[in-house]
Design a protein around this nucleic acid. Structure first.
Length: 475
RNA sequence: GGUGGAGUGGCUGAGCGGCCCAAAGCAACAGCCUGCAAAGCUGUAAACCCACGGGUUCAAAUCCCGUCUCCACCUCCA
């Protein structure tokens, strides 16, 4: 394994070594299911899907845990607005997220725990923190429990901040807090909230704070020490800082690497509800084919800002079409479809990967360089077709299929499916027109041949004249 | 105010001391191919030499100092 990853805590690229040989545990902060999935959620999920794929290619057994935060202020608030039960609203949006992930062929995580299913683990962790002297029940008699950030000397280590530099909100109500920077581990039940959103504890009725959820779920599924903790850049502070502090204070080694993916901006601006510029998953999928959306979201380096604006999907469409056209032509020419498919563990796939691609992936998942390798190979393959060199073509095709399989953009994996009866009927119809056009061309009746081509084009079908005959495809 | 990141061809976006007279894609132009196209290939043009001004070095887009601009986080957020 020669993979290096940028570790946010070390603020440096570090060589990645699994804690347990051959296995990798990844915890990824999933969404709070309080609304519809947007482009940022998809990018985040995609980044770790790609990481997971690359680890699998390197024969590591990956356990990916991505949680669902299904209890939270916003969930309760939004449910009040719609009149739904909070858990019904949360599940409704959870399904929307799963639909969007599936559309982009982002594989489901190994485990997808909901916060509400890990309450006992959270309470255990809170107890350990109280015993260690780093947590305390609110001093105003409520059921609130806080983490004493001000007592944890290493607080700020993840984001390289000194606790004294953190400007405490002047107007913040301390209520039962000893220090303004202390944060809630457990939140007392509030008068207006439904009783179904409260759990009885020795502190009183209440619900979990956001940060404790992830600490508890990560260790529940991956143990007190695991390889990688990931999430969006916006979660570094306070969420991940707080997770690290509480887990460390409880004596857990916690994550070996911290990864943060860059955010998606819209025309240079942060996406936000108040600006009304959010791009939702449904918007993307309405504007472009899923494989194109996946290509676009994965085209920039995972740590850089990805800007969404007019035209980016068209550009991605062209690039994807180039790859698809090549694969189609190559398979048609070579006849065999005994091509490399989705098995990431196969020796064949590994053997077919160009060195430049593997190097790019190993260097902190340098996606642009990896895509450059894909396109280089596409060009080499196209040249081989022109030169009639089938051996070189086979090599290029295998390389392209292997690389795109790793990236999750193998055209064969996105094909609509085997020929259905409808496809066969359509093919019969179009073949008849192709024959008629061929006859017209032989007779030099170009008006007629062009009319046929234009008619099909208008119906969304493109004809392509190749050396071995005319082929058609749906636009 | 604190912390982190970014300014590279028309656009997207790599490179982060010599392999860079700067990858790859998109867009443009020309040639080949074609009856004409499309697709494909080949080539061309395109970055006042990589925000600006200094410096270090045999050597800098890449390191250092200064300046300007932009973005993110410090409040719920992927």
């Amino acid at each position: 394994m020669s993979l290096s990853l940028f570790d946010s805590r070390a603020q440096a690229v570090r060589a990645f070594e699994p804690i347990v040989a051959g296995k990798v545990g990844i915890y990824l902060c999933g969404p709070t299911v309080q609304g519809l999935p947007h482009v940022g959620h998809l990018r985040s999920a995609l980044v770790y899907d790609q990481l997971r794929r690359w680890l699998k290619v390197n024969l590591l057994e990956v356990t990916l845990v991505r949680n669902v935060t299904d209890i939270d202020d916003k969930v309760l608030e939004n449910a009040k607005g719609t009149g739904e039960q909070w858990w019904a609203l949360a599940y409704r949006f959870e399904l929307e997220f799963n639909r969007a992930y599936a559309a982009l062929q982002i594989a489901p995580p190994t485990y997808e725990p909901r916060a509400t299913a890990a309450i006992p683990e959270m309470l255990d962790l809170i107890d350990r923190l109280i015993a260690a002297g780093y947590a305390y029940q609110a001093e105003d008699g409520s059921a609130d429990v806080y983490f004493a950030a001000s007592r944890w000397a290493k607080y700020g280590e993840l984001t390289n901040q000194k606790i004294d530099d953190m400007a405490p909100d002047a107007d913040v109500e301390l209520r039962g807090k000893r220090d303004a920077r202390d944060f809630a581990l457990w939140k007392a039940h509030k008068a207006g909230d439904p009783s179904s959103a409260a759990w009885n504890t020795r502190f009183g009725a209440g619900r979990p704070g956001w940060h404790i959820e992830c600490s508890a779920m990560a260790t529940k599924y991956l143990g007190s020490q695991f390889d990688i903790h990931g999430g969006g850049l916006d979660l570094r502070f306070p969420h991940h800082e707080n997770e690290l502090a509480q887990s460390s204070a409880a004596g857990d080694a916690f994550a070996n690497f911290w990864l943060h993916n860059g955010l998606v901006n819209v025309s240079g601006q942060k996406m936000s509800k108040s600006l009304g510029n959010s791009i939702f998953a449904a918007d993307l999928l309405a504007a472009a084919r899923p494989i194109v959306v996946r290509y676009y979201l994965g085209s920039a380096h995972y740590r850089s800002v990805l800007d969404y604006h007019e035209g980016v999907l068209d550009e991605a469409e062209s690039a994807v079409a180039r790859i698809e056209t090549f694969v189609e032509k190559a398979i048609r020419r070579l006849g065999s479809t005994a091509a490399i498919r989705a098995d990431l563990n196969s020796d064949e796939l590994r053997a077919a990967l160009p060195a430049a691609f593997a190097k790019a992936m190993d260097e902190d998942l340098a996606m642009p360089a990896a895509l450059a390798a894909v396109h280089d190979e596409v060009r080499a393959g196209n040249s081989a077709i022109d030169a009639g060199d089938d051996s070189a073509l086979k090599t290029a095709l295998d390389a392209v299929l292997a690389m795109t399989t790793v990236l999750g953009i193998n055209p064969l994996d996105w094909a609509v499916g085997a020929n259905s009866g409808n496809d066969q009927a359509l093919d019969n119809l179009i073949q008849a027109l192709i024959e008629e056009r061929k006859a017209a061309r032989t007779d030099k009746d170009f008006a007629r041949s062009d009319a046929i081509r234009n008619q099909l084009q208008a119906a969304g079908i493109t004809l392509e004249d190749a050396a071995d005959g005319t082929h058609w495809s749906v636009n």
